[in-house]
Nucleic acid binder design. Structure first.
Length: 277
DNA sequence: AAGCAAGACAACCGCAGGTGT
DNA sequence: CACACCTGCGGTTGTCTTGCT
């Protein structure tokens, strides 16, 4: 038999996600985890294919996603890792806490690659940004379209409707070096709305908006979340029983991996070399 | 003010590898 | 061992925003 289609095309929504869909997906995963992407949309009542749901969650809704501009260090690390790993974006992303492969891929193609082509020797320097890009980044964000504006409006509702989402659903990737970064990650439960509202300048905007989120609104991520009995109680247990599957894996290993590699790079002096870029 | 070109990023598509039966 | 299914990955596209003319 041939490969099964990724999804039943008929009747499934495509394109941009609505705030309602985001909310539904996030709420479902918060409650049940994602033991089966293929079955998830049906169980969550979403007219999307599992692939789409997975992508949305991983690249957008996951609470540990770090939004905002890539720092010079991050860009340098990307350059370095790209030299070593090539276009293995997922592997590169694994070394960058809170960054997704898709995001890194986009950044590579839109920023870094061009910069390296223009200035191979000093490509990764933060000061090497193109004029136009710099100007754009400084510009206040505006919703891309009505839907995204709605997403922004809905963001509050979203978070209210999903209390504890940002603090509860965490893969545990919390290797943040600063409180601001941590806050960014914690508040990224609102990422969907924030970036939907201003995906292009979400970086700059996020920096400022993140600060406006109080820790009371978005309590810090508890890395022990996934292993806590509460998680099982809130649905994973039932799901496990039903499907015979384990809950979301702990990210501790991934976290340790990242720290390990970052440490290795730093100790090997690679990062020093990169600082020149 | 309008049109155009380029930038930016979310999302889709198809393939490959892994896993269960 | 073969098959079927699922997940993850990388490439690519679509569309909106922004800056320039």
């Amino acid at each position: 038999m041939g490969r099964a289609p990724c999804c039943e095309k008929e009747g499934l929504r495509r394109g941009a996600w609505s705030p309602e869909e985001d909310q539904r997906l996030a709420a479902y995963i918060r409650q049940h985890g994602h033991p089966n992407w293929r079955a998830l949309p049906r169980q969550a009542g979403l007219l999307r294919c599992g692939k789409s749901c997975r992508l949305r969650w991983i690249n957008y809704l996951r609470p540990d996603i770090k939004r905002g501009n890539f720092s010079a260090d991050e860009e340098a690390l990307i350059v370095r890792l790209h030299c070593e790993l090539g276009n293995r974006w997922s592997a590169i992303a694994a070394q960058l806490p809170g960054r997704t492969d898709n995001e890194i891929k986009n950044v590579w193609h839109t920023h870094i690659k061009k910069r390296l082509e223009e200035d191979p020797e000093g490509g990764a320097s933060a000061g090497g940004r193109q004029k136009k890009q710099k100007a754009r980044k400084s510009k206040p964000a505006a919703p891309k379209n009505k839907k995204q504006a709605a997403a922004a409006d809905n963001s509050e509702t979203f978070m209210t409707a999903s209390p504890g989402l940002s603090s509860s659903v965490s893969s545990g990737v919390t290797t943040f070096s600063t409180a601001a970064e941590s806050t960014a990650a914690v508040s990224s439960g609102d990422t969907a709305a924030t970036t939907s509202a201003s995906p292009q300048t979400g970086a700059a905007k996020a920096d400022t908006e993140m600060e406006s989120f109080s820790s009371a609104e978005f309590p810090p991520i508890d890395e022990s979340f996934w292993s806590s009995p509460d998680v099982v109680d809130m649905g994973l247990g039932a799901m496990d029983e039903e499907l015979g599957l384990a809950g979301p894996p702990s990210a501790a290993t991934r976290d340790e991996d990242m720290e390990f590699w970052l440490k290795m790079l730093l100790e090997s002096g690679d990062m020093r070399d990169l600082s020149v870029l």
